[in-house]
Design a binder for these strands. Structure first.
Lengths: 123, 123
DNA sequence: CTGAATCCCTGCCGATACTG
DNA sequence: CAGTATCGGCAGGGATTCAG
């Protein structure tokens, strides 16, 4: 059990942590770390695809036809750097790469669910 | 009970909804609605301040000193449009405005918590 | 097949200055 | 006190092209 509810008696809905008091945008703030991982057009859709199972580069292109090579590469690199996805090059020819969510990446599922719930509830 | 768990038997972590199958970024996707509401530098910090209680314009400026007038105005307008905050003009002089989270806006607390948890757990 | 490099264009962000 | 107007810089995103 690595996350969920640190206990925040006096602050409804906000963690009881010094970083919760930052007075300006701070890349080390957990909230910003997560938003940075999700940042950019297409990012959440790529994650959604990978939540459904491992995918190759071409699988992703086929699932998201309007997504350009450049942006797909960018997103996969960004997500790899954030520790969300892992690349595995498969031996043989033609060259193939398999993209998998890391354990950390799979942890985004409840985050996306929370985003979905609020957006669906709202307004 | 307006949101939370539609029931998604076959899709771990993802809602069972046709919109979950969109093949390109779609502003009506709940996830994107939420991300749009949170988009932009300073946005989450403004929300955090308001989660702690109602604030006036100057209160917010004092709490976030590095935030410029223009951006604060932009954020408050954006959040008002998203139905997250409500403005109340107080009568009398000098002019005062009180910013309050709507019920919908208060619902962002668990979302921010989820973002915090993942960012704090990770990497 | 799987990417990375380039070019261009748009939109966001901040600083400054000004109004009711 | 509570904003709005304008300007400039810079980063994000798409189309195309090139490489391993």
């Amino acid at each position: 059990m690595t996350h969920q509810t640190v206990g925040h008696p006096a602050r409804p809905g906000l963690p009881d942590d010094p970083l919760a008091d930052v007075t300006e945008p701070d890349p080390s703030c957990p909230v910003e770390i997560t938003l940075a991982a999700l940042r950019g057009r297409w990012t959440t859709l790529v994650i959604r695809e990978l939540l459904r199972g491992d995918r190759g580069y071409t699988d992703l292109r086929r699932a998201l036809p309007a997504l350009s090579d450049k942006v797909l590469s960018e997103r996969l690199a960004q997500l790899a750097q954030a520790g969300v996805v892992e690349r595995r090059r498969l031996p043989g020819w033609p060259p193939r790469t398999c993209y998998t969510l890391t354990a950390h990446g799979r942890g985004l599922a409840p985050v996306l669910q929370a985003l979905w719930d609020w957006g669906a509830a709202g307004e």
